[in-house]
Design a protein around this nucleic acid. Structure first.
Lengths: 216, 216
DNA sequence: GTCTATATTGGGATAGAC
DNA sequence: GTCTATCCCAATATAGAC
């Protein structure tokens, strides 16, 4: 059974919002990527949204309520894209390459990753929000494993899971290096990564050449 | 020529500090990992250090001055360990394995990585501090390339650089997943990574099995 | 070098008018 | 649903005593 569309560990809060609330949330995202977490004040967000500051409390209850909605929205927005694109492609070699192409594209979306890393400290310290991040990572690892399995596998075989974890780590790690240095050319590294992954999954789990690592 | 010890792109501020200032800086690091960036107030740091709040301004000039010292100190502390450990081991296969073992250990130091990710948003937005992070990443990539070259190479060959970038990304990416879920077992993934890296460098740049990626 | 007292700012919450 | 006025608190900065 393939992944159903809404197997995500949290929900996009956007559709449930009144139009004013949706505008406020979008404004908050712009403020976040442009000016950072500290700039997320009622005053600043309201000005960006063209609304009255008191409306934020009315729609989200409190600052914490707004932040919770913002976190889900930021985490969610990246996840949706991937699953849409991956389900549109047949399993097997074609989907492997699509997954890698999508992951290569992620670090290019600097606004989204900027928001992600701005929120990380806040999420990690909040007992309500941390499980959302854990769920997101878990979901990404499952998605990558699913996309990397063979066309004729019902479930991803065991040897795929570690590779899925690495793939997720690579995307985030490269995005961070890219944020630190926008001029960084990570294409050669990603080309290498593509060769490593495809060689691994399409050989059924062979890693390393003849001189490779110690047997387990 | 191997890396000299102080080829780092920034300097550890600690040695230049008066004893009181050093105590304050260490206290700030503890506050940061325990309570986060927002908790970094004169009051909180001074209480943690057992000093008077006004002394922070005296020794560091301002909040910004304290943060600059803190950033360098946090970034620096991880870098020193690596180079010490790596220069203690002969080049070639032994050093390759030592590098990987060290990278595997990094995500375990949750306090250090917590501080790192707490500071990331602040560093990325500060025009003074961002170059320090860029320099750190550049230095890590160079260090990893140097550690992954063959014993008889004077300089790391071309094909090593992309692998060094990936290795740095893996460490940060895994650390992030680990912070989101302390129970995460990333050992199978790191074992796979070890096999991939060793197979690659010890075969002189062969990536992927017979079914591997497209030729360049 | 160390400490106290105070000025100033800015953000979040509350109450209530419209 | 939208807006104004106000209270309260926390944090940085300043000046100056010791």
């Amino acid at each position: 059974m393939a992944l159903t569309r809404y197997e995500l560990p949290f929900s996009d809060p956007t559709p449930d919002l009144a139009p004013t609330a949706a505008r406020i949330l979008e404004a908050a995202k712009r403020v976040l990527s442009r000016d950072g977490f500290r700039a997320l004040t009622f005053e600043t967000i309201a000005r960006e949204a063209g609304e009255n500051p008191a409306l934020i409390r009315y729609h989200f209850g409190s600052k914490a309520g707004l932040l919770a909605a913002l976190v889900d929205s930021v985490l969610y927005q990246e996840a949706v894209e991937l699953i849409e694109q991956l389900t549109a492609v047949p399993a097997g070699a074609e989907r492997h390459r699509r997954l890698l192409a999508l992951h290569e594209g992620l670090p290019q979306d600097t606004d989204a990753y900027r928001n992600f890393f701005e929120l990380i400290p806040h999420i990690l310290r909040d007992d309500e929000l941390r499980p959302h991040l854990r769920g997101l990572f878990d979901w990404y690892r499952k998605l990558d494993a699913w996309a990397l399995k063979d066309a004729d596998d019902a479930q991803p075989p065991e040897h795929i899971a570690p590779m899925a974890l690495l793939t997720v780590a690579i995307a985030d790690g490269i995005a961070l290096q890219k944020l630190a240095d926008p001029d960084l050319d990570f294409e050669p590294a990603f080309d290498l990564w593509r060769r490593l992954v495809l060689g691994y999954v399409e050989s059924g789990g062979e890693a390393g050449g003849e001189g490779g690592g110690e047997p387990d």
